[in-house]
C-alpha cells in the first residue's frame, strides 16, 4: 500500500515538473530555442505573484491572475528585444544569452528580495486532502496535476486547432516561407514566449504555495523541466507530461528508499530513459 501511495505522490509531483516544462517545450517546438533562463523566469514569476499578493493583500490565486499578463509582457519584450536578435543557425549565442539572463535574473532577485526563503500562503486549502480509492492525497498536489493536464491540453488545442497554432507550426517548419504568407516570425516567436511565460506563472503559483522558494532555486527547477522535455520527446507536449511524471515518480521512489536519493533518482531515470530511447518517448519529428 505504501508503494501505491508513493507512486501516486510521484505522479502528482510529476504534474508540477510538467508545468515547469510545458513552456520550454512550446518554445522549443516553435523556435528551437533552449532557454537556460526558464527556471529563473519561473522564480521571477513567483516573486511577481508574491509582490502582488502582499501589496494588494490578495490570495495568491487571484494575484496570479494579475501576474499572468505581466509575465506575458515580460516574455514578449524579452523575445522581441533580446532573443530574436540571437536566434539563428549558430546555437552558441542563444545559449549564452539565456545563460547570462539566468545569472542576471537570479542576482537581480537576490538584490531586490534578499536570499530569504519565501512562500505563497493560500490559506486552509494547503492542508486539505482527499481520499482517492484508499490513497490520501493533498488537495494542492492534486490541483497542480489537474492544472498541468489542463495547461497541456490547452496548449495542444492552441497548437493544433487555432490560427495562431498554425502560424506556430508553419514558422517552425520554414521561417522564410511564412513571410510570403504575411506572417512575421519575430512576432510569432514573441507570442510563443509570452505564452510560455503565462505557463511559467501558473507553475510559479504552485511552486510557491507548495514549498519555500528563494532566488537561487531556478537552475534546479530548470534541470527537472529540461529532463521532462527531453525524455518526453522534443516538441511533444503530452510527451512532456509523461516525462514530468517519470521524473516525479523516480524521485518519489528514490526518496522512499533513502531520502538522500530523491534528486539523484530523478536524474538517473533521465539518463536511463535516454540510453534506451535516444530520441525520447514521443518524438514529434525528425529534428
Amino acid at each position: 500500500m505504501i508503494w501505491i501511495d508513493t507512486l501516486v505522490q510521484g505522479v502528482l509531483l510529476g504534474g508540477l515538473y510538467a508545468l515547469f516544462a510545458a513552456g520550454l517545450s512550446l518554445v522549443f517546438g516553435v523556435m528551437r530555442l533552449v532557454n537556460l533562463a526558464h527556471g529563473d523566469l519561473i522564480v521571477l514569476a513567483a516573486f511577481v505573484i508574491l509582490s502582488v499578493a502582499t501589496a494588494l493583500n490578495l490570495n495568491p490565486f487571484v494575484a496570479a491572475v494579475i501576474a499572468i499578463p505581466v509575465m506575458f509582457a515580460v516574455g514578449w519584450v524579452l523575445q522581441t528585444y533580446l532573443l530574436n536578435r540571437v536566434l539563428g543557425d549558430d546555437i552558441l549565442p542563444p545559449l549564452l544569452v539565456t545563460f547570462g539572463l539566468s545569472v542576471v535574473i537570479q542576482n537581480g532577485l537576490l538584490e531586490l528580495f534578499s536570499a530569504d526563503s519565501r512562500k505563497l500562503t493560500a490559506g486552509s486549502i494547503e492542508a486539505e486532502s482527499v481520499s482517492l480509492g484508499g490513497v490520501t492525497v493533498g488537495v494542492m498536489p492534486l490541483l497542480t496535476f489537474v492544472s498541468a493536464v489542463l495547461v497541456i491540453f490547452a496548449l495542444n488545442q492552441i497548437f493544433y486547432r487555432t490560427k495562431l497554432g498554425r502560424a506556430f507550426r508553419a514558422t517552425s517548419d520554414d521561417r522564410e516561407a511564412v513571410g510570403l504568407m504575411g506572417i512575421r516570425p519575430n512576432n510569432v516567436f514573441a507570442i510563443a514566449t509570452g505564452i510560455a511565460m503565462v505557463v511559467a506563472t501558473i507553475a510559479a503559483l504552485y511552486l510557491g504555495i507548495r514549498a519555500n522558494f528563494d532566488p537561487s532555486i531556478g537552475p534546479a527547477r530548470l534541470l527537472y523541466a529540461f529532463e521532462a522535455v527531453i525524455i518526453g520527446g522534443l516538441g511533444s507536449l503530452w510527451g512532456t507530461l509523461a516525462g514530468g511524471v517519470i521524473i516525479g515518480v523516480s524521485q518519489a521512489l528514490g526518496a522512499a528508499i533513502n531520502p538522500e536519493w530523491q534528486i539523484l533518482s530523478g536524474h538517473v531515470a533521465f539518463v536511463v530513459v535516454l540510453l534506451v530511447r535516444p530520441r525520447g518517448l514521443f518524438p514529434r519529428s525528425k529534428d
Partner: peptide, 16 residues
Amino acid sequence: TVYLIVLGCLGIAVML
C-alpha cells in the same frame, strides 16, 4: 552580487 549582474549583462552584450 552586483558584479554578477554586470558580468551577465556584459556577456549578453558581447553576444549581441
